[in-house]
Structure formats: structure tokens, C-alpha cells
Amino acid sequence: MSARAVRPKLPFLGVAGRHNRVPSPYPWLMPVILVMGLFYLYPVIDVFRYAFTDLTLLGGEGHYTLSTFANVLTRPELLQILWVTFVFTAGSVIGQQVIGLAMALVVVRSEKRHLFGTTILRTTALIAWVVPGIAGGIIWKMLFNEAPFGGLNSLLRLMGMAPVQWLSDPDVVMWSVVLSNVWRGTAFSMVVMYAALKAIDPSLYEAAEVDGASARQKLFFVTLPQLRPAILVNMILITIQTLNTFDAIISLTGGGPGRATEVLSLYTFNVVFRNYDLAAGSVLSILMLVISLTLALIYAGFLPKDDKA
């Protein structure tokens, strides 16, 4: 007899026979449902409602209309904003994933060998992670400062190298912003990869060693396939996180020069808080939601399915 066959039938809303009464889960779930509904669902519903209006912060009640969608989605600057967002997100996600994995591998390997400095490396990376976005932006602004007393350029000059226009060159500034975001976000990927690496069955490596696999072969044929679910989940999380990043950019470049670093989240922020256009900001928020969900679904499609019995 299978386990399924003996599982008692859960009564709907807790109504059950006298002898197998099972308490309803709903009273237990209600606080969570209420909190989620109040703090998550209600604002989302409000955003959808605003998107179908022409509401601004400047006065008037606003009217229901579809024109805001048409107006926002046909703005000439939107394509450039989306491209900037794509470059920023792709650069940040790839950078954080690759460096996070590399650091986790180094930490795990050095722990095995009881090397000095493992904790220092881990702690240093985590410090960057806990720094608030605005503060991180300000720190990098000081480093990238192109004045004669700017941080990184002073170092370059000491080494006899030419200074770099970190923030004023439209071709360089995006990579400066990506670098600052990778610096901040890598620790998260490192922690996820570290936990996943620790969970890999050591017997797999033992078997690989018996087969005479080199370190490179063990990485590509044991470690990476075993990490695949963790990598994909991590990529979903950091993609959504990066898409929503604007605090570090606003304090580092403000989206400039021009619109060179104005990502979708910052553009949305500017539309609401500088142009006072609530309806347009809501449409852009929905656009961000659609992009995040689409990317999450694409990643999820690559997740390994449960083995069928």
C-alpha cells in the first residue's frame, strides 16, 4: 500500500467527521494572508489602478483612461532606457554570478586546506553587501572622482598611468556603474554558491578522482552540473534585485551624463518624483514587473525537473 493510500483526506474548511477532525489551516494562514494582502497585494492593485488613469501629484482627481499606456510605451527615450537597463542588468548578473562562484570556490577550497584568511575574505565580501545602496554609490563616487585628488585616478597616477574618465565618458560610465554594483552584490552570490558547494555529495568527487579526473574536469563535470539549480535560482534573485536597483545609481551618476546610466527603475523614480506623474510611473512599474516575471519564467524553464518515480 502506498503512502498516498493511507493519507487521511483533509476536510475542506476543517469540517470533518467526529473521529478524524483535522483543524483548518486557514486560521493559521490568515495572519500571513492579511499581511501579504495589506502590504504587498494592495499596493500592487493600486499600481494597476493608477496605470489606467491620468493621475499626477499636481492636482486634480484623475480620470480613467488607456492613453497613459499608449503615451508611456511610445516615448522615444524608452528604447534607450531599456537598452541601458539590459546592459546594466546583464553585466551585473554575469559579474556577480561569476565572481561569486569563484570566491565561493576559493573559500571552500581554502577551508579544506585550513588556509589563513578565509574568514577575512568572507567577511570583507559581506561588508560590501550590507552597505546601503546610497552609501555604496557615494563611496564609489569618491573613488571614481575625476578631480586631481580622486581615489582611483590618484592611484593610477602613482603608477604612472593615465587617468580614466570613469564617469564623464559615456562609453565608460556604464561599466563603472556595473563595477560598483558587482562589488556590492557579489557577496550574496558567494553565500548562495558557498551553501550549494557545501551540499555537493563528496562521494562524487571521490568517484571522479578514482576515474582520474583533473581539477578542470571536476569543475565542469561535477561541480557545475551539481550547482545548476542553485545558479539558476541565484540568477533569478539577482536579476530581479538588479532590475530594481536605482539607489546606487542615483547617488553615483544620477542617471547621467545625459541618459547614459538611466535604468528603468531610475527612470520610473524620476517620472514619479521629478515629473510628478503617478500614472506614467505606474505603467513603468508594470513594465518592470512584466520584465522581471518573464526573465524569472525563462530561468525557471532551465531548472531541473523532479525525477519521476
Binding site: 564623464s168 565618458d169 551624463p257 545625459g258 521629478r274
Partner: peptide
């Protein structure tokens, strides 16, 4: 006037493009 914040926003964007030689 109500439009001033947007005028200012557009001038800032324009200035970035001009000063960096992007346009």
C-alpha cells in the same frame, strides 16, 4: 509654472549629452 521641473530635467539631460560630446 508647473512645467518648470520638466524643463529643468530636460536641460540637465541635454547638458550631459553636450558636455560629453555625445550629441
Amino acid at each position: 509654472v508647473l512645467i518648470y521641473p520638466e524643463i529643468s530635467n530636460q536641460i540637465q539631460i541635454m547638458m550631459g549629452k553636450v558636455l560629453t560630446g555625445a550629441e
